[in-house]
Nucleic acid binder design. Structure first.
Lengths: 226, 226
DNA sequence: AATATAAGAGTGTTTTTTACTTTTAAAAAT
DNA sequence: ATTTTTAAAAGTAAAAAACACTCTTATATT
C-alpha cells in the first residue's frame, strides 16, 4: 500500500500560537529561532510533520516535547502555504492555536527553550508569516468564544466570574458589563458553583466556579456580540 | 536557498467541495474515481499540490483544469491528515469549498469528467473521508452565511429576493420568513435594486437585485441566527 | 460599631427577532 | 372593462435579547 502515488512531496510543518492568560492579559509564546534562515528572530513554536502522524498529532508531539504536557487544547487555524513564506525552502505550515496555563507547566518551555510570554500589545516582530498566523488565530478564537464559553484550559481549576470576565475582556480587548456577563454566563448552565469563596478581591467574597465536565451543553448560544 | 531543511516530505493534496444551486436546492459535485484505491467510488474533485504553488493556487488550478473557469470562489475548510485516510499512501489533504453556477460553465466538468451534481439529500456514499470534508464544509458555509451575505457566485448575475431567500433556505434546510428576510437583507445595504422585474413568479413581479461590487460592506452583521 | 468594597441581584430601556396582517402591482380570468 | 388571483412589498405588534444602570448584601478592615 505504500508509494501508490507518484508525485512531488512537500515539507509540512505545524506552528502553534500558544495562548496563556496572566494579569488580566492574554499572552502568547514566542521564542528566538535557533536555525537559519531567521536565526535569532522571534518565532512561534513549530515542528515538522512526520509520516506516521496527523497534523494534530504532530502539534501535540511538538508541544509535548517542549513542555512535557499532554492533551493540550488545540484548534486548527488554517494552512499557510505561499511558496516563499519560508526563505529556507518550500514549507507548508498548518497553524494551530493552543491554550496553556502560565506557571509551572510551561517551565520547560521557558527555561530550556528560552520561550517568552508576550502580551498581545508588546509582541515583538515575528519571523516569516507568523504574525499573520497569530492574527488569524485571534480571529478564530474570538469567533469561537462568542458562542462557546472558553477558558477552562486557561484559567485555574476553579475561578471566579470576575476572572472569567477579565479573560473575556482580554480576548476581546473591551470592557464587559459585570451584571450582564454574569447573567449570560450563568444562564448557559455549564458552570457549577462551589461552596467556597475567593476573598482576595472583595470583602464579600466571590464564589468559585468550575466548568461542568467537558462536552456538556455548549449549545451554540451567543455569549457576546462581536 | 533550496533543501535547507532535511526532513521527511509528504504528499499534499487539495479536495474541493463544489457547491452549486439549482431548483431551490444546494448541490455538490462528485465523480467516480479513475484510479485505485477506490476506483469507481464517488469522490470529491481533488489533485496534488505542486512545489511551485500554494494550496489555494493548487485548488484553483485543479478547478481550472476540469472546468476551464478561473478565479473561482474558494474557502479553506480544514486539513485532513489521519495517516490512513487514503489507503493508497499517506496523503495530507486540504479541503476547500467552492461556489459554481450550474449550467454552461461546468460543461467540461460534467461531460469530460463524468461529474454529477448531487442534491445534499441524495448524495451517494463518498470515498475515504470525503463525507467528513463535506460535513465540515457545510458547517463552515452555514456559519459564514450567517453573518455575511453569500450567493453572488451561486445565483445568476441578477436575482430576486425570492431566489436569494430560497438559496438561504437550501443552505440552512429550513424556511425563512419572507418579510423578515427582506427587511434584514436590504438593511445590510449591499444589494442594488435594478429597475427591471422578474415576472415569472408573480403577477406583481419582483425586482431584480445585484450585489454591489465585491468587498463592499459585509460588516459582520448577523443575517440569520443559527 | 461603622466603613468600605466588590459580589450579586434586580430593574427599566432599547434593540433585535419573530410572527403575522395589510396593501399593492399587474397578469389572467370573467 | 371589471374582477380575480398571485406573490411582492410594506407594515405592525408581541416576544426575546442585549444593554445600561441601581440597589442590596456579605464580610474584612478601620
Amino acid at each position: 500500500m505504500e508509494q501508490t502515488y507518484q508525485h512531488a512531496r512537500q515539507l509540512v510543518a505545524v506552528d502553534c500560537i500558544i495562548f496563556g492568560y496572566e494579569d488580566a492579559d492574554l499572552k502568547v509564546v514566542a521564542f528566538q529561532r535557533k536555525l537559519n534562515p531567521g536565526r535569532g528572530a522571534w518565532s512561534l513554536v513549530g515542528g515538522w510533520v512526520n509520516h506516521d502522524e496527523s497534523v494534530e498529532e504532530a502539534a501535540q508531539r511538538v508541544l509535548h516535547e517542549i513542555t512535557g504536557l499532554e492533551n493540550i487544547f488545540l484548534e486548527q487555524v488554517e494552512v499557510f502555504s505561499k511558496i516563499d513564506r519560508d526563505p529556507g525552502d518550500r514549507v507548508i505550515s498548518v497553524a494551530f492555536y493552543a491554550f496553556m496555563r502560565i506557571g509551572q507547566q510551561d517551565k520547560k518551555l521557558v527555561e530550556e527553550y528560552g520561550a517568552h510570554w508576550f502580551s498581545l500589545r508588546e509582541l515583538p516582530e515575528l519571523v516569516f508569516d507568523h504574525q499573520d498566523m497569530l492574527d488569524k488565530a485571534l480571529d478564530k478564537l474570538r469567533r469561537k468564544a462568542s458562542y462557546q464559553l472558553v477558558g477552562s484550559e486557561l484559567l485555574p481549576d476553579r475561578f471566579t466570574l470576575l476572572q472569567l470576565r477579565k479573560l473575556y475582556e482580554a480576548i476581546y480587548q473591551r470592557e464587559l458589563d459585570p451584571g450582564n456577563f454574569r447573567k449570560k454566563v450563568l444562564g448557559l448552565g455549564i458552570l457549577r458553583q462551589l461552596s467556597s469563596k475567593d476573598m482576595s478581591e472583595s470583602k464579600k467574597g466571590a464564589y468559585y466556579f468550575k466548568f461542568k465536565k467537558a462536552g456538556t451543553g455548549q449549545n451554540m448560544e451567543r455569549i457576546i456580540k462581536l
